[in-house]
Design a binder for these strands. Structure first.
Lengths: 192, 192
DNA sequence: TGTTGCCGAGACCGATAGTCTCGTCAAGGG
DNA sequence: CCCTTGACGAGACTATCGGTCTCGGCAACA
């Protein structure tokens, strides 16, 4: 016990290899499942690790899955600045749709959202995870508004929701493509 | 055994009161849960019925839940025909958003979608369930196109997905309102 | 060398979907 | 009028899962 409120670390240290193995196994299984549930048992077994090692470092299964996605697969979304509102929105839509088309990100993200539907803890983590993406759209719209490219009566919040509403709808249902051509037509559709 | 391939019904008949009790209980619990899972045990107990009676007549829990919603709560969506594309789309958006705001439909639908995320059988039933709603939007757009109110380069499929994409996104996340004013602004936003 | 704390392994708990069995009860045929 | 059929409520049972707990072992540091 020291005066700074934390004490010296004693005993065995955290095994970094186990952490890596867990995240690797989680992402593999997540990507392979493509929507189907992934159990903790399966992750631990695939990582050659005890379940307790998992729960010692993560608060829930969802936290492990989300970290596996963010650490290994979820590339940063660019914040395009092409000089025009239409250009920015097109670029962001293309990048967003593109990232959601290929493994391991796409199937892992699909599984994660499905899990979040039943796991309030994961749902909250996902909400935070997606918040930065929403903020990126907001910034694009705000820059456009300042340039006079966005009519004052357009509600930015509604536009952001339209953007991600369509994205998630098509991503989760998978009934229609999310290719670059669609992205550009979609961005243009949003701006009218 | 008769020559027509079906045989005489013998034995005790299906208890219609039990069927009603199951659907009533399911809708009540579905609405009360508002997203939280509803177990088969709970439904059967609330209906005063054995679990086997449930599984004798429905293939899965999801099927019971969906039938409870469609039989008891899901009012038919109007197919508005106001004479203009904008009027029709506004009316449908207002009606759709309205239906998703109040119990028991709203919380029951939320629970159902969450369950569908983990139950492929239910997901397929839900897909069929929502198909007629999508068709209604398609019809509105097609009438508008024939009247020359919709530019030929607008993709109707994309517009339908934009319509339900935003709806589900806001409905499931619940972070922004789905009131009549929003519905009208949204319809106008879609048409540009 | 002893204390601390992580390790893998797996038993354990509680909840759940779905199956199976039991004794009972209703409907119709012979 | 009874006997066969099949639905009924009840609940035991299986299998799966998230999460907790305990065990013997081991690594790091004092």
């Amino acid at each position: 016990m020291d005066t700074k409120g934390h004490r010296q670390h004693t005993g065995r240290r955290r095994n970094e290899a186990a952490r890596q193995a867990i995240l690797d196994a989680a992402l593999d299984l997540l990507a392979d499942a493509d929507g189907a549930p992934v159990s903790v048992e399966t992750i631990a077994r695939a990582a050659g690790v005890g379940k307790q090692t998992l729960y010692r470092w993560w608060p829930s299964k969802g936290a492990v899955l989300l970290e596996a996605l963010t650490d290994r697969a979820a590339q940063e979304v660019p914040a395009p600045d092409t000089g025009t509102l239409r250009g920015d929105l097109r670029a962001l839509a293309v990048a967003t749709f593109e990232a959601a088309q290929y493994p391991p990100t796409a199937p892992a993200l699909r599984t994660l959202v499905r899990e979040a539907a039943r796991d309030p803890h994961l749902a909250e983590l996902m909400r935070k995870f997606t918040e930065s993406r929403r903020a990126a759209v907001h910034e694009i719209l705000e820059r456009g508004r300042q340039r006079g490219e966005l009519p004052a009566d357009r509600d930015p919040e509604l536009l952001v929701d339209q953007f991600y509403g369509l994205f998630w709808y098509r991503f989760l249902l998978g009934h229609a493509p999310l290719d670059a051509d669609t992205a550009i037509r979609f961005a243009d559709s949003l701006l009218g």
